[in-house]
Nucleic acid binder design. Structure first.
Lengths: 132, 132
DNA sequence: ATGCCTGCAAAATATTTGCATGTAA
DNA sequence: TTACATGCAAATATTTTGCAGGCAT
């Protein structure tokens, strides 16, 4: 992912040192699923001094800005997914690991009618897996 | 729901006063979605003195015993569903409210192939709603 | 220069655990 | 009687918030 500065600016976020470094960790490789803890550890490993609060603030801001998708599969911990395409997830329970399901590999037919007065804002499908 | 004692015993749980009272709250009406907080408040309203720890222990034991299904839709809070039939959920984000989707109203076609070495242990579909 | 951002620590929230006591079997 | 359950408080874990100081614009 090039031009992280542009990406942040487009999202309405200032290009601070911490945000740029975290964006680099998040968006420069392939698609990723991270928790605050994972990202914090990675930042420190890469010599970036960021506080936990900034990790949380940044993840939430990126999420609000539409740069990350939040995935809730475990109680007490949030995952953030850099893959913004319409897709769903396998969740390996023993390993606390998420795996993307390619959109062409799943088809949801006959979604139920949305109750009157409401509008759908998203559909999450989670297939929970365990080791055989 | 009659014979709560039998229900607990069948599940391998002792029929204590607190468990029976909580089971009554959970299983005597129609299907319900409760959080620990909701159940605790209800118990107190009904004059039952139970500690928070017992609420959590009981919900977890009922879940382990297969009497409740856990539904994770919000970070930081677990819901427990008394409806054990195969079904999915609407989640009204503004109200923190779950609504069952009748199984005949949704069809998931072409589930993706489970990665080798794993077996599926459940599929959760959550349709998030907002007020129009 | 101004307003948003960061770090730190403390607070808030949800849940779990240790231990002494109580109670179902 | 004995093993499991309960209550209470403290511990744990994750996330959020307040505030003083720092930095992007």
């Amino acid at each position: 992912m090039r031009d992280l500065s542009g990406k942040l600016r487009t999202a309405g976020l200032r290009t601070t040192k911490q945000r740029l470094a975290l964006a680099d960790l998040l968006f420069s490789g392939g698609n990723r699923h991270v928790t605050a803890e994972i990202l914090h550890a990675e930042a420190r490993t890469n010599g970036l001094a960021v506080s936990q609060a900034t990790i949380y603030n940044t993840l939430n801001q990126f999420h609000e800005a539409g740069l990350l998708r939040e995935v809730i599969v475990e109680q007490g911990r949030s995952y953030f997914d850099t893959n913004l395409s319409d897709h769903h997830h396998f969740y390996v329970e023993n390993e606390s690991r998420l795996i993307d399901i390619d959109n062409q590999d799943i088809a949801i037919g006959d979604l139920p009618q949305t109750p009157t007065g409401f509008e759908p804002v998203g559909v999450d499908v989670i297939i929970r897996l365990r080791h055989k």
